[in-house]
């Protein structure tokens, strides 16, 4: 019995250390961002000056705007592509369903380095080398599998008799979709949208390959900034990204359960 507890205690200790390792850089960034004495720890007070500086920088504001527009459009497109596919996959059983599922998930299996390079070369070839289209396409395709995963899971929980009832009282397919199906799976839709948005908002590898000049998303902007200086303004900016991500994590967890993000 004592041995048994020792084993559990050891596991708990290792887990605790691992969690500290995972949280440490995030916590340090948040502390530096509100510490009046730049980098001198422990903090001797609380200030939002660094945040003010970060949020009034034209470069960062522009990056934020680009990331915001990009994230919302990519999340919208990814869900628009994934929703009908998820409905077809959940409602029907057919030969080759597993294969189609793998094909739809394939953007996750391709290393982002190669995926981004391939899109870059392809768009250069068809004459769209620098434009917003490649960037939007790259983000949309990359996040679509995540949308498909969450939407499939929430459609699985949808009782088909709602839609049958709608059909019986004479609602058409479009009407059923908008008045019955979408309202019932709204939590799934919202969390899918939140996940897609945050993945796009935080993405670096795809953006660095595909962002056209003058349209630099925030993470790439932050990267070029910390290449030369890593002051507290950068910490404030990084903290803004962290807080928005934390919000998305809470939304996804409350509405769909975080595990669905990675579980197939």
């Amino acid at each position: 019995m004592i041995r048994l507890d020792l084993g559990t205690a050891a596991l708990r200790l290792i887990t605790l250390l691992m969690m500290a390792f995972l949280v440490f850089p995030i916590a340090v960034t948040l502390v530096v961002a509100v510490n009046p004495r730049e980098f001198i720890l422990p903090p001797n007070g609380f200030t939002l000056d660094w945040f003010k500086a970060a949020w009034s920088s034209q470069t960062f504001l522009r990056g934020m705007g680009v990331s915001l527009v990009l994230g919302i459009s990519a999340a919208f497109l990814a869900n628009a592509l994934a929703l009908p596919a998820a409905m077809a996959l959940v409602r029907n059983n057919f030969a080759g369903k597993a294969a189609i599922n793998i094909v739809l998930m394939s953007p996750l299996l391709i290393p982002t380095t190669i995926f981004s390079l391939a899109l870059y070369i392809y768009f250069v070839r068809i004459g769209y080398g620098s434009g917003l289209v490649p960037l939007l396409v790259g983000h949309t395709i990359h996040i679509m599998p995540y949308a498909l995963r969450i939407l499939t899971a929430s459609l699985h929980n949808l009782d088909p008799s709602y839609e049958e009832a709608a059909a019986i009282v004479g609602a058409g397919r479009i009407r059923t979709l908008f008045s019955v199906t979408l309202p019932v799976i709204r939590t799934g839709l919202v969390s899918s949208f939140a996940l897609c948005f945050i993945l796009s908002w935080n993405d670096f590898p795809i953006s660095v390959f595909l962002a056209p000049p003058g349209w630099t998303p925030l993470p790439v902007e932050l990267f070029s900034y910390i290449k030369f200086q890593y002051d507290a303004v950068a910490a404030a900016l990084a903290s803004s990204l962290i807080l928005l991500s934390a919000l998305a994590i809470v939304i996804i967890d409350r509405l769909a359960g975080l595990r669905r993000v990675v579980r197939s």
Binding site: I26, L195, I198, N202, P205, P219, L222, F223, A235, S245
Partner: peptide, 13 residues
């Protein structure tokens, strides 16, 4: 958290 928070942000920390 590290999967959803961007790489640049984590690298800064």
């Amino acid at each position: 958290a590290p999967l959803l928070i961007g790489l640049v942000t984590l690298v800064y920390g």
